[in-house]
Amino acid sequence: MVTLEDIRAAQARIRGMVRETPMRASAGLSEAAGGPVWLKCEHEQETGAFKLRGASNAAAQLGQAAGVTTASTGNHGRALAHAARQLGIPAIICVSRLVPKNKIAAIEALGAEARVTGASQDEAFEEARRLEREEGFALIPPFDHPDVVAGQGTLGLEILGQLPEAAAIAIPLSGGGLLAGVALAAKALKPDIRIIGISMERGAAMAASLAAGHPVEVEELETLADSLGGGIGLENRLTFVLCRDLMDELILLTEDEIAEGIRFLAAEEGETVEGAAAVGAAAVLAGKLRAELGPLVLLLSGRNIDPGLHRAVMEGER
């Protein structure tokens, strides 16, 4: 398992490799939530998403390898490509046909190969495992890895360092690496803090797995929150248990609710974010999330939305 000490070590290890991102109060969301709401602007990270933390921590501890590989819905792949370029090693990022073209282009712009294979993240993962098994690449998974979880946990330390009075943190939930890391750090420092996971109704693998009591496969469906797609792995070793034990509440959203979150953040807060990053604001606007017990932190996890899709959402076409 991952400890607070592991997360503190990760924080020291990646200092200088990642940015400390700002926290901003939101008057409009505070009014809607019935209490103070703060936006943790992790979409301002260098690669446009929180994933740089976990990827950098894991890559910085690699031994001898032909290169690095992973399967990704986009943001982890981009982060790992960035870390690999810093380390001067090859990277092959395996993605499914559902990954938006802008995210594939961003991976390739960093000098990595984006290998499109399969119709789901699980199928893309099979190619990453083959590269590990047959070609000597180091496989750094997008979430179910202790070094990745510890790296994401640095966000929990940062949030409470900036806002010690935070009463709850709302976290986009996919494979659970982000939620697990932030929850481990936050609850170690402040045991009564509430951790709220938020996902989409369409193909939320962690939600389905928690309901079943064990990891299950789900059909990966097209969604505005594409970064939250993909399975958690039937052999999940870490994040399923941590999410089950540390998450206080789980909220699922419709596509219309996610779209409204994207629109509000752009129009009222001046923040262009992807669907996965808008779920916290969406939950507040839909009346599913309140801040009556004290300051609520919404984690804006990434900004890497396709520009055409963002225009369509803003014009009410999605």
Rank of each mutant, 00 (worst) to 15 (best):
T239K: 07
E201R: 11
A112P: 08
G153T: 03
G156R: 10
S96V: 04
G153A: 06
V37L: 10
A79I: 08
G63Y: 00
S227V: 13
L179T: 14
A259C: 11
L98T: 13
S72P: 06
E132Q: 15
I107H: 09
A49M: 01
C243R: 07
E235F: 12
L189N: 01
R115Y: 14
G270E: 08
L238S: 08
L299Y: 09
H214N: 03
K190N: 06
L242W: 13
R318G: 02
P141R: 05
G136W: 10
G233Y: 00
E31W: 00
A49H: 05
A60I: 07
I193D: 00
V284F: 08
A282P: 12
S120V: 12
W38G: 03
P215K: 02
Q162C: 13
S227D: 06
H145F: 12
L298F: 08
G35D: 06
I305Y: 07
P90W: 08
G151V: 11
V95S: 03
G231F: 03
R318Q: 11
A32V: 01
H82N: 11
V2S: 04
L224P: 06
K40N: 06
E44H: 13
Q152R: 01
H310D: 00
G316T: 08
Q121T: 13
R303F: 00
G136K: 00
F137M: 04
L139H: 10
I89E: 07
N236T: 09
L173M: 15
E113Q: 13
I196W: 03
R53K: 09
G308T: 08
K288A: 05
M23R: 06
E132K: 15
